[in-house]
């Protein structure tokens, strides 16, 4: 039971990070119907920017707790802003010129943008692992020494990840459902031409979608860095594929779907590693995806198409 609880905590933590990245995939897919394969690398860029900022500001665990939190919030905001610029630029250079071109064209440039970002970071930052001393050490011990002596830990960084993700998801859901920007995004998603006939600047709305996705990826990047303490130029690939899987599993285009999918992929991976074998955790995650898609091609929360014409 203790073991199960520990896996659950780990799984939810990992799933939160996937969920944050998955939102970027699902929103872009929803609005322009393409998979932004560079999104995982935007997450990686966000993670590197966070690391650079942390080092530049000289943030270490020895700072007083209040100052540490303030400094990390500062890092988060700057990193979100800078990563957004990256996301915006990729859209501007690699996708917008191809709008109205055949469907596969932006998919190919997306892969190109992904390779370009990876190589840029590899060359400019070096190919080696970048470690970071734990900034938020410690945590709660939930159970101590039951019969098998297993100790359940809930670390402060896990709490941070889960709390930040929950807050962002709530904020984001409100933004999409209640604000005029969110309405414009949903309108563009459902009928771009009609949105422009109502005076919506469609290009700008699409750009903002990329910016929002990138900002969330930047948050995921910082959380990933704080949690694992080591990053390299390649982390975007696997995290990107996982988050993409999460988005498809939840129903691509659906925002709650991306969150749910992220959580599920995180849990499946963690439990599989915990009870079976670590080597096959990716196989487990992708198998679940395949099975769900066979029986529910639209994903778990995909759109039910009830439209009369």
């Amino acid at each position: 039971m203790e073991y199960f609880l520990q896996q659950l905590i780990n799984g939810v933590t990992l799933g939160s990070i996937y969920g944050l990245i998955a939102i970027g995939y699902t929103m872009v897919y929803g609005i322009i119907g393409m998979i932004n394969f560079a999104h995982g690398d935007i997450f990686m860029v966000g993670s590197f920017l966070s690391l650079i900022l942390i080092v530049a500001f000289g943030i270490t665990a020895s700072l007083p707790i209040g100052l540490l939190i303030l400094a990390l919030i500062g890092v988060l905001i700057i990193s979100m802003a800078l990563t957004s610029v990256w996301g915006w630029t990729v859209e501007r250079i690699a996708y917008r010129p191809l709008r109205g071109s055949f469907r596969l064209a932006p998919l190919i440039t997306a892969i190109g943008a992904s390779i370009a970002l990876q190589n840029f970071v590899q060359i400019s930052q070096g190919a080696r692992n970048k470690p970071l001393q734990p900034l938020i050490p410690g945590g709660f011990t939930l159970t101590e020494g039951s019969d098998d002596g297993f100790i359940v830990q809930l670390s402060y960084s896990q709490i941070l990840i889960i709390v930040v993700t929950t807050l962002l998801m709530i904020g984001f859901t409100l933004l999409i459902n209640k604000t005029s920007l969110g309405r414009a995004q949903r309108a563009c998603e459902q009928d771009r031409k009609m949105a422009s006939l109502l005076g919506i600047n469609v290009d700008r709305t699409i750009s903002l979608t990329f910016v929002m996705g990138a900002a969330l990826a930047a948050v995921a990047g910082l959380l990933f860095l704080l949690y694992y303490g080591v990053i390299d130029f390649y982390i975007g690939f696997l995290a990107g594929v996982k988050a993409f899987t999460a988005a498809v599993l939840g129903g691509i285009g659906s925002l709650p779907g991306a969150m749910l999918g992220g959580l599920l992929i995180g849990l499946i991976e963690t439990f599989w590693s915990g009870y079976f074998s670590v080597e096959y955790k990716d196989v487990a995650a992708f198998s679940i995806l395949a099975i769900v898609l066979i029986f529910m091609p639209e994903g778990l929360l995909g759109k039910p198409e009830v439209e009369k014409v």
Binding site: A187, Q190, D191, M194, L198, I200
Partner: peptide, 17 residues
């Protein structure tokens, strides 16, 4: 070209956006 997955009210508000 009604927005099918928006409520009637939201469709109307889109018109005044």
């Amino acid at each position: 070209r009604i927005f099918p997955r928006m409520s009637v009210m939201e469709n109307l508000i889109m018109g005044a956006e």
